[in-house]
Design a protein around this nucleic acid. Sequence first.
DNA 1: AGACGATACGGAACATGGTTCCGTTTACCA
DNA 2: TGGTAAACGGAACCATGTTCCGTATCGTCT
Lengths: 198, 198
Amino acid sequence: MAHFDSAAGESAPRKRADARRNEQTLLDAAAEAFLASGVDVPVRDIAARAGVGVGTIYRHFPTRADLVVAVYRHQVEACAEAGPALLASSASPHAALARWIDLFVDFLVTKHGLAEALQSDDAAFQSLHAYFLDRLVPVCARLLEAAATAGEVRPEVHAYELMRGVGNLCIGAGRDPRYDARRLVGLLVAGLRPTGEE
Amino acid sequence: MAHFDSAAGESAPRKRADARRNEQTLLDAAAEAFLASGVDVPVRDIAARAGVGVGTIYRHFPTRADLVVAVYRHQVEACAEAGPALLASSASPHAALARWIDLFVDFLVTKHGLAEALQSDDAAFQSLHAYFLDRLVPVCARLLEAAATAGEVRPEVHAYELMRGVGNLCIGAGRDPRYDARRLVGLLVAGLRPTGEE
DNA sequence: AGACGATACGGAACATGGTTCCGTTTACCA
DNA sequence: TGGTAAACGGAACCATGTTCCGTATCGTCT
């Protein structure tokens, strides 16, 4: 058979070598820049780091969200895949949920500005929002459903809402030593438990 | 006695009449603009509404935060003053705390972009942050302390952290029907209660 | 190898919004 | 009424996102 690009049987007509090289260079430069200055780092800074013009960034990643997603895709996937594993290995569904959310929080608080970007209504972050939600809400929903079935959480909370709440609580974490996002998320998760009576 | 400005016995050397008029005009225009376009509304828009130049805005309110504080000062004061009243009138300290936080949330979710601004690290919002915190954290601390003394909340949560958490949860409220900030705040407050054992 | 079309590149140019600055106007007082 | 200091307006400046097009490069076909 003929040889294709890494992804088998793609219909897309193979990109030029310099284009593929630049894409990788850009990903590396962006990862560095995000780490150094947060995901809001000016486009020109990323371009300078990569040694390309800004036009090249926009050609490869039309919106900032595309770049952010590309940089963090692996970690998001890992988080998504950890959900079912935790459900299988934890003592209770509520414990699995709590641990999975810890994973998510750990991810968010170590990425400067990512939590902010996730909740931003700026059009440039639209697809970031969409990607995170598409990938993680179903995982969260399964955990939540298992916990609800076990009677360990109130049934009226939806996964979408919970994820956004957790994301919101992570905003500003690491910027202020008096604010511990993990503790508040813990409180929120604790609040999910049904009250004794009712 | 000699007649002074509205505020009695000020040392500041009375401002010119047009300046006082403009200040009021600006407050009205800003209130309108915030309502219509959120607290992020461009400075030029506010200036246009008020029929003044942008320089005039900066002279009266050097940072955006000063303007925001001036517009919402009354409501923040009212919220602060409601704290002790609720503590006196509620069945339990935890109930008072919950109701007071509801008040705060109601305030935040009806002001487009205010919750976002409150958590922003943008230098222009520095003093907004400071004002809200200075005024409301002590009130929250008293409620929290009363509840802790009554054994109704875990003692390790600080008022500052709780306020920031609640503020964070209000981000994006009203922009998405699937996200109900009030419900999540309710969960968080519920999570404050000590667990049965321990 | 050489030439040609498609693809990709770079960065100048434009749009938007915050901020500053200074020449002009206005209010106040003598 | 005239002088002075306060206040005003908005042009100009800066930072950043975004678009666009002349130029350079790649890959292929002959």
